[in-house]
Structure formats: C-alpha cells, structure tokens
C-alpha cells in the first residue's frame, strides 16, 4: 500500500445536558473510529471505549491492507465479544444493566494495488464525504426511520422529527451479532471525510455541516467548529467529530467537462 499523507482533526464534547461523555474516538492513521455508546452507568462509555481499544490494538499489531474488510470485521467481532462479556459480568450485580454502541470506521486499504478508503458502519453514527464543495452522506443509518425513508413511507424531512428516530436496528452489544455495512471509495472521491456521532448530525443540518467543512480549511479547526456548532444548537447529546483530509489530492475534473456535458445535451436533446 502506498503511504498516503493524511491530515486530521478530532473534537468531542459532553454537551450541555449529559453528565458523561459516552462517545469515544480513535485517530491513529490510517485507522479512524467514532463510537457512540448507549446505556448509562459505566455502560455506554465502556462499550464505546472497547471498540476504540480494539481498533487501537489492530493498528498496533498492523493489518494486511489487502484484507481490510476481513480485519475490520474481525475487530468489530472482538469488540462485540468483549462488550457482551462485560455486560454479563455487570448484570450479575445489576440485572437491568445494558450497554451498546454504534461504530463508524475509516481505514486505508489496498484494493488491487490502489489505496482506497474502506468505511464501515453499524448504527446511526455517520460518515460523510466532502468533495468538490458537495456534502454526501456515505453511510446509511441502521435505524427505523432510515428504513421508512428507504421504503418511501416518509421523507428525510419527516424522518428528522419522527417519534421513532432514535431507534436503531443494529449496534455492537446486541446479542444478535453484528453485521457492519462496508463501503469502498477511491481516495479521489473524498477530499475530506467526516466521521461523527449523532450529537453532531442530529443537532445541526447537513447544510451547516457542509458550510463548516467548506469554510474551515484546517481539519482540526473544522472538527472543533462542528462540535461548537452542535453545542450552540443546544448540545443535547455528546458530540464527536473526526475530520480527515487526504493531502495532495487534486480534483481530477478536466477543464472542459462542463462543456462536454452541454454539447452532449445538445446532440441528444436531453441530458443523458
């Protein structure tokens, strides 16, 4: 795998309402993780920390970049086993104890000789990419409302205020086992990646996230600005943002791509 120069920044805040920050994040190039724990009382924070620890261990040990998905999926499975085990220990004393966590992961992998982003998602934390001035949510939430949106039953706007918007359908710590979704992106498709907990994406609209990512050049400042914006919007949840820039990435749209599209439109009578 060719080494890639990454600039990154991360910020987290407990918010204005909660007493414990149950979010955890890992910034260990080429591995980045955000985990949003659920279940109070030495629950969510431990669960999210376990995920981060396991990925830190993966970085320490090193991984075969050609088998990225396998490594990530194994690491998530190890974290899952530890969370379940920890939960069983806790429940011996507190029968109603629960813990779970979401996870979003970005790692650099080698796909047939080319370095790419391998992204993984479980739950409703999010991965966005910011490319050419456009913000695009890459991960697909594992949530009840997302399924309703997919099915066409409700719109994205209705989802934001839906009563079941906090019900997620997959998470680490559930006894059903975990099935992360994976995504593979060429580096050129994402000048900037954002990993965040729903304390960011649930507090400020995508348009504001895009504006911050566009305006703030340094990834460290961008992460800070995102968390601050979430706090200013109410800070009702732990907010965590990790911003990663691929350095030296030149956008490869050729000088005449717009003109080509226009001429094709002329020839075909409509934009194909």
């Amino acid at each position: 795998m060719k080494p890639v120069d990454l600039h990154h920044g991360a910020a987290t805040d407990v918010g204005h309402v909660r007493t414990v920050n149950e979010d955890s994040f890992l910034v260990a190039p080429p591995v980045f993780v955000v985990a949003d724990g659920m279940g109070g009382h030495a629950g969510g924070d431990v669960a999210s920390r376990i995920v981060v620890e396991e990925f830190a261990r993966l970085v320490e040990r090193g991984y075969d970049p050609r088998r990225g998905a396998e490594h990530v999926s194994d690491t998530i499975a190890r974290a899952q086993a530890r969370i379940v085990e920890y939960g069983e220990g806790q429940r011996a004393e507190h029968p109603r104890w629960h813990a779970g966590t979401t996870a979003v992961v970005a790692v650099l992998v080698d796909d047939a000789g080319t370095t790419k982003w391998l992204l993984a998602n479980l739950g409703d934390s999010r991965i966005y990419r910011f490319d050419d001035g456009r913000l695009d949510q890459v991960s697909v939430d594992h949530s009840v409302v997302q399924e309703l949106v997919d099915a066409g039953s409700i719109t994205a706007e209705e989802a934001a205020v839906h009563p079941e918007r906090h019900v997620i359908t997959r998470a680490l710590g559930s006894p059903e086992g975990v099935r992360p979704d994976f995504f593979l992106l060429p580096l050129s498709a994402a000048e900037r990646l954002l990993l965040c907990s729903d304390g960011i994406s649930g507090m400020i609209p995508d348009s504001e996230i895009a504006a911050i990512l566009d305006a703030v050049h340094d990834p460290r400042d961008a992460a800070d600005a995102l968390v601050r914006a979430a706090l200013d919007a109410g800070g009702r949840d732990n907010a965590t943002a990790v911003v990663i820039d691929v350095v030296g990435l030149v956008h490869d749209d050729s000088y005449d791509s717009e003109r080509q599209l226009a001429s094709l439109e002329d020839k075909l009578g409509a934009r194909p």
């Binding site: 309402v17 909660r18 149950e22 949003d36 659920m38 969510g44 779970g100 409703d124 949530s143 009840v144 079941e164 906090h166 019900v167 997620i168 359908t169 997959r170 998470a171 559930s174 729903d198 304390g199 649930g202 009702r236 949840d237 732990n238």
Partner: peptide, 9 residues
C-alpha cells in the same frame, strides 16, 4: 435528549 432515547429496535 438524543441518547437518552436511543434504543435498539
């Protein structure tokens, strides 16, 4: 509050 309500369906 967000997380306070987040449940796994």
């Amino acid at each position: 509050d967000h997380d306070g309500h987040t449940t796994v369906g």
